[in-house]
């Protein structure tokens, strides 16, 4: 069964009821945007090593991925998922710790930026190799089912770039074969680093693949928070209810470089006129004003609160110790008795 949500026009004020999570979701989007603006500015100031990868333009999709998940669910986020990670419960200070590489963060300076997670809390730690986390999530869900857990769901995100790997194909197929309660949210942000859609895939829409894999598929306009909440919320509900795995394909434009090192000058100016290029945060803010969900003083207070939270997270993380090579425990296995060549470790 293929369900397709038609993209709506940019501004379609209706009297339809507003999604109950709309305002909460907007605040997570605002927090993610504020946090990532700070990250980008710190990167430019040379205060962050490695790279900074932001989700600008994808916050609406991402927040919808995290906001419907509950304790006992498993989330395997990817590069542009700050909003969703926060909504699922990742403390902001852990993000700051990971970017600064402190010993106190979940990765303890051993891995950085977006490669972070707390598997015991249902937050899988992505690796850079795209598509690899789909099958990992399938295994987690199979184990939960085997252990008699009920009412759980797994959600993972990927981009249209990552959809083209062999691992993605294997992962999607095995998910359907195992009939696990899985939602895959694929965001087509129109560029795999610098490569546009026409060099990435040749099918009309990636959602067409849903039928091929035995998934239920949906398309949506990722710039519209209302649609993101409706469609992804429904997909999560359906997966939880035992329907086949769900594939949601969202369309947006990446409003930043692949990372902050990338000036994305390869993106032609005309594309910003497309409906998928709209900024989801701005659009949600306009909707809130239009529908008078909160007044402008409250909106301003939320912005200030976001800035305060971000500043607090970095202030705390910056005070914490960074790792030292000579003090590090250079042991890649947990069974210490089986460490190879132990004399070198002394």
């Amino acid at each position: 069964m293929l369900q397709t949500a038609r993209p709506k026009k940019k501004k379609a004020p209706t009297n339809a009821p507003v999604h109950e999570k709309y305002v909460e979701a907007f605040r997570w989007m605002l927090l993610a945007r504020t946090f990532e603006e700070k990250l980008a500015s710190m990167y430019r100031g040379g205060r962050i090593t490695g790279g900074v990868y932001v989700g600008k333009g994808q916050e609406a999709i991402s927040v919808a991925c995290g906001i419907f998940l509950q304790k006992g669910d498993v989330f395997a986020p990817l590069i542009r998922d700050q909003a969703g990670r926060s909504a699922f419960g990742e403390p902001l200070v852990d993000v700051a710790r990971t970017y600064l590489g402190t010993r106190t963060g979940p990765m303890r300076g051993r891995d950085g930026n977006i490669h972070r997670g707390k598997p015991r809390d249902g937050q899988l730690a992505m690796i850079s190799h795209l598509g690899a986390m789909i099958s990992v999530l399938v295994g987690s869900l199979m184990a939960k089912r085997g252990q008699g857990e009920k009412n759980f769901v797994g959600l993972t995100t990927i981009g249209e770039g990552g959809m083209q790997t062999g691992a993605s194909h294997e992962g999607l197929n095995i998910a359907a074969v195992e009939h696990v309660p899985l939602v895959v949210v694929a965001t087509n942000n129109h560029y795999a680093y610098s490569t546009p859609n026409d060099r990435e895939f040749a099918c009309a829409s990636l959602v067409d693949r849903a039928r091929g894999y035995g998934f239920e598929g949906y398309e949506l306009d990722g710039t519209d928070l209302a649609q993101c909440l409706d469609v992804i919320g429904t997909a999560v509900k359906r997966a939880r209810a035992g329907r086949p795995p769900q594939l949601v394909v969202a369309s947006v434009l990446r409003l930043a470089g692949h990372g902050e090192h990338d000036d994305f000058s390869y993106v032609p100016k005309e594309i910003y006129g497309e409906s998928f290029a709209y900024d989801c945060v701005q659009r949600a803010q306009e909707f809130i004003k239009e529908r008078e969900l909160v007044d402008s003083a409250t909106l301003q207070a939320w912005r200030e609160d976001a800035v305060r939270q971000v500043d607090e997270a970095f202030a705390m993380a910056q005070k914490e110790p960074t790792p030292k090579g000579e003090e590090e425990d250079w042991c890649a296995i947990s069974t210490r008795g089986l460490l190879d060549h132990p004399e070198e470790q002394e």
Binding site: A132, S135, L137, G139, L141, A167, E170, I174
Partner: peptide
């Protein structure tokens, strides 16, 4: 239910095992 055939998907076989192991299984 404990000896399971898989598709010809070596990457996904191991990925699935990793996920199951993280949830306490011994695949």
């Amino acid at each position: 239910g404990r000896v399971l055939n898989t598709p010809i998907s070596e990457d996904a076989m191991v990925g699935t095992a990793i996920g199951a192991a993280l949830e306490g299984m011994r695949p």
